[in-house]
Every structure is written in C-alpha cells, then in structure tokens.
Amino acid sequence: MTTTNLIGLNRNGAEDLAAQLNDLLANYQVLYMNVRGFHWNIKGVDFFELHTKFEEIYNVLLEKVDEIAERVLTLGQQPLHAFSDYLQLSQIQQAINISSGADGIDSLLEGYQVLIAKQRQILNAAGELGDEGTAALMSDYLSQQEKESWMLAAYRGRGA
C-alpha cells in the first residue's frame, strides 16, 4: 500500500488535514445559518442596508461550505453532512432570534474570529504537508475575511 493519496500527499497527513477541514466546515455551517437568521429577522433603521449585506455574506459562506467539503473529498476523506455533527463540533454557537443589526454584526465578527484562527492553523498544516491547494484556499479566505472584519468593525464604529 502506498503512503501517498491520489494527489500525492502523505496519506496520514491528508487525513489529519481533512479532519481539521471538517471542523472548519462545521463552523462555517453554523455561521451560515446564523447569518441567514440575521437576514430574515433584521429590524430597525438599517434594515435595508443590512438585509442586503447579510444576504451577500451568507451567499459567500455557502460557496465556501461547498469548497471546503469538496477539498475534504479531494484529500480522500468524507465531509461531514449531518447538522448534528456540525453543532457538536462547532466552536461558533447558534445565534437565535437576533433582530438587532448591531447584535448580528457583533455575532458575525465573533464568528469570523473563530474562522480566521482555524484557517491560519490549517494554512500552516497544509504548508507543512506540501498541500498547495488547501493552503491557497485558506489564504484566499483569510484575506477576504480579514478585510470584511475590518469593514464590519468600522461600520460598528470600532477599530480593527
């Protein structure tokens, strides 16, 4: 039996990396549902602006959910697909019945902090494994979410 997988990565390393990606996937799924809820339930003077912004964000999150799951498959593993698994693994907690724009943004910023930390860890692990595909994905996600975090914090009147 060969020690590398279909794409030439160390089998054990790829398995470990896929487990980290499944953990990330769980966090993305919970954050995605949270932001859907913010979009649906937002009220107040910033309704039109934030209703649109939350929709933009949840569409981006959904795209990343698919990319992460497909990366797990590319590494030769199976992505988690039960919401019960997501809730059990996710560090991001469910945000229920949030209708305040400020509370939604604050919750989103907390979620981004979790994702950013996990993606940095995965980026490092992918680099050590020589997995450029996963590293590139994490690098792209990090740069996007760092900028989005700065912008949302500025919207809330806070510094980075």
Rank of each mutant, 00 (worst) to 15 (best):
V72D: 02
P79F: 06
E67W: 07
G101M: 13
I7V: 14
A69M: 04
D131S: 11
Y141E: 08
D66Y: 06
A18H: 07
L137Y: 08
I96G: 00
S99V: 15
N41F: 01
H39Y: 08
L50C: 04
L142S: 03
R156F: 01
Q88H: 13
S107T: 06
A95I: 11
S107R: 03
H51C: 00
V114G: 11
A14K: 08
I96E: 08
G76R: 05
I7G: 12
T3S: 10
L24G: 06
E132A: 14
E67G: 00
H51N: 05
G13Y: 12
H51D: 06
M151F: 13
G8P: 04
E63Q: 09
L73P: 00
E67H: 09
D106V: 11
M33W: 01
G76A: 07
I7L: 12
L80C: 03
E110Y: 01
F83P: 01
A14R: 09
D131N: 12
S107H: 02
F47K: 01
A126Y: 05
Y112C: 02
N5I: 08
Q121D: 14
Q88T: 09
G127K: 02
E15P: 00
D66I: 01
R120T: 10
I7H: 13
Y32M: 05
S100P: 09
I122C: 07
Q119K: 11
M33E: 10
R156P: 01
I57G: 00
L123H: 11
E56A: 07
K64S: 07
T52K: 04
A154S: 13
K118Q: 15
Y58F: 15
I7E: 05
A136N: 10
A136D: 13
L108G: 00
A117C: 07
Y141R: 00
I57W: 04
F38I: 04
G13N: 10
